[in-house]
Write a protein that binds this DNA or RNA. Structure first.
Length: 290
DNA sequence: TCTTCTGGCTTCTTGCGTGG
DNA sequence: CCACGCAAGAAGCCAGAAGA
């Protein structure tokens, strides 16, 4: 149920929270309390927007809130903007994961495993199918640099998935941004981080290969899509758009594709295709590595 | 009063034709 | 062949109308 008064109430509480003016080290107790209060208010804020939709996701909301509190930098505009954007993303990601879990008959399948299954399918297509399973497995193990045991498990997963219907390969493109985003954002341990860097370097490489005229446009789009996932956005990558960063700093909003089309005097459709083409190039680049 | 239907709005994509 | 624009389509979201 939508209750405007509640929504406004929590908005206010969030905006007026002392959390970000507290010194974490000097006042640890006050900071912790403010943090807990903030998380509670964010949760209630979301419930005031749509109770049925968000109520089951208390755990995800708490995690997102915690992550946002840790990474928020007040130079980046309103905290609520920051959180809302992050939550939107997390919610989509969670929904998608639920969908995948259903596909794999309720088994929980991690993002990495899904990727591995895709690789498996591709490898299997390349290697002749007449091989006996065990031979095939050892060849795949070699090709994918994984233990034979893992290959066997993957094979089982693929069987389950094949029975339930459609192949997943057609989703590849749509999910590319998602994969990039998830890689950069959600996983925080060391290996994943390196994986994320690897991907971003690829993005950079493909970006460098574009014609000069296309670069500013692609730069704005990529920056918009990845902005929230980057930890220190300004440095290192040539594809990061300063203009988009500036807009975020000033207004706390990111441009839409339509805005960008207007900015460059191009049709929306044109931008859409430019992005699509770029993603295809990126995909090719990623596949080459295997 | 509570639910669900409906139409409008926004954003992005796709089909098709044009011109360099 | 490639980049582009137009117009229609697809999908998500929301608020107010209509119905129970």
């Amino acid at each position: 149920m939508y209750k405007r008064a509640d929504k406004e109430k929590y908005e206010k509480l969030i905006q007026e929270s002392p959390l970000f003016s507290l010194d974490k080290k000097a006042e640890p107790v006050a900071f912790r309390n403010a943090r807990l209060k903030m998380i509670e208010n964010l949760y209630l804020y979301l419930l005031s927007i749509n109770k049925e939709k968000y109520e089951p996701y208390g755990c995800e909301i708490t995690e997102t809130a915690n992550r946002c509190i840790d990474t928020y930098d007040s130079a980046r505009g309103e905290f609520l903007n920051f959180f809302n954007y992050a939550w939107k993303k997390e919610f989509k990601y969670t929904k998608n994961r639920e969908r995948l879990a259903e596909k794999y008959r309720g088994l929980h399948v991690s993002e990495n495993t899904v990727r591995a299954v895709r690789k498996y399918i591709k490898c299997a297509e390349k290697i002749e199918k007449k091989d006996k399973p065990e031979e095939l497995y050892s060849k795949l193990a070699e090709a994918m640099e994984l233990p034979v045991k893992t290959i066997r498990e993957l094979a089982e997963l693929v069987d389950i998935q094949v029975e339930t219907g459609n192949s997943i390969s057609d989703e590849d493109e749509e999910e590319l941004w998602g994969h990039i985003a998830n890689n950069v954002n959600i996983e925080r341990d060391f290996e994943e981080k390196e994986g994320a860097e690897n991907i971003l370097n690829k993005v950079d490489k493909v970006f460098q290969g574009l014609r000069a005229k296309q670069q500013p446009i692609i730069s704005d789009v990529i920056t918009t899509k990845l902005w929230m996932c980057l930890e220190e956005p300004e440095q290192r990558y040539s594809f990061i758009s300063k203009e988009v960063a500036e807009e975020w700093n000033k207004k706390g909003t990111l441009p839409t594709q339509r805005d960008l089309a207007k900015k460059y005097g191009r049709d929306e459709a044109s931008i859409s295709r430019t992005v699509k083409t770029f993603l295809q190039k990126l995909k090719k680049e990623m596949e080459q590595e295997r």
